[in-house]
């Protein structure tokens, strides 16, 4: 038997934080790819500490629903899952290339395939583009448009910016958008000045966050000047300094993310048979361009 455990941050305050995790888990459950699918959270239950004992399978694929490699994926999650032999070097990653490490969890006597975060998977570039398509309601969006990928910035984790840049570079290389730029909340170039960084009149802004919450629904819209008060909402597109800003919600809420989670597990050796196809049908997905 094999199980999939999706580990995510969760929240004590924001009920919407876990929503994408459950939604993607449901999609994968329905595909029948795994004997068991379970969600676990840093701030909700089951906790990371109790997560592995909630599945019966002896082989467990753990996929972090996190954006970047760093504090959570390299330190907190392995520690809380009690993966005693864990060492970040096992991922042999340059900051965005972690795939998986096979470990043993003693408290539950199981083999654990600890995967890299979904956020750095190549297929995430496609999810970001998909987000741009949904917010503009244009499946061919690109020409005449700028695209900004927005992230936290380095705050306690230098790889956070690496992940944002990685996808911005990849999307730029697709040659689909006139301009592509990585912007940050807490460092230069800042998302506050989004219009300074683009010549295109139309700019799609996609926050590389797992769930919608304070940052994506309050901070960023106000910082960019889409609205003075997030509670009153904003227009899509919104006129800011002679530009039209198309602001998409958190990338993690895109249905497509279920594909990325499955890809991570498959690359770690999960036998998912024809489930990937089923999930792609359910999420309206396209095969990942990256591999």
């Amino acid at each position: 038997m094999q199980a999939l455990v999706i580990v995510a941050h969760g929240s004590h305050l924001n009920p919407a934080s876990s929503t994408p995790t459950y939604a993607h888990a449901d999609t994968i459950r329905e595909s029948g790819a795994f004997d068991e699918v379970r969600e676990a959270f840093w701030k909700e239950e089951p906790s990371f500490r109790d997560a592995l004992r909630t599945v019966e399978s002896e082989e467990v694929f753990v996929v972090p629903l996190f954006i970047s490699e760093g504090y959570f994926t390299e330190e907190v999650i392995p520690r809380e899952l009690r993966l005693d032999e864990w060492d970040p070097d096992l991922w042999e990653s340059d900051g965005t290339s972690a795939s998986q490490a096979t470990l043993y969890a003693e408290d539950v006597d199981k083999t654990i395939h600890y995967c890299g975060p979904v956020g750095t998977h190549d297929a995430m570039s496609d999810v970001i583009v998909k987000r741009a398509e949904s917010v503009t309601e244009d499946p061919d969006v690109g020409e005449g448009f700028g695209l900004s990928v927005v992230g936290h910035g380095t705050e306690r984790n230098e790889n956070s910016a690496k992940a944002i840049e990685y996808h911005a570079d990849r999307i730029r290389d697709m040659g689909r958008f006139d301009e592509v730029k990585a912007l940050y909340m807490d460092e230069e170039p800042e998302v506050d000045d989004v219009t300074d960084y683009f010549e295109s009149e139309d700019v799609v802004v996609v926050p590389l966050f797992v769930a919608d919450g304070y940052h994506t629904q309050e901070d960023i819209p106000e910082d960019m000047g889409l609205t003075d008060d997030y509670r009153t909402g904003w227009d899509t597109p919104a006129a800011v300094d002679g530009h039209r800003i198309w602001y998409a919600g958190a990338v993690g809420t895109e249905d497509f993310m279920a594909d990325v989670i499955l890809e991570r597990a498959a690359e770690a050796g999960a036998d998912i048979r024809d489930a990937l196809e089923k999930v792609r049908e359910a999420t309206g997905g396209v095969p990942a361009s990256g591999d």
């Binding site: 379970r38 239950e45 089951p46 906790s47 109790d50 997560a51 004992r53 909630t54």
Partner: peptide, 9 residues
């Protein structure tokens, strides 16, 4: 498992 996670275990 949804209402009281990990309690049975």
């Amino acid at each position: 498992g949804f209402v009281y996670p990990a309690t049975v275990e």
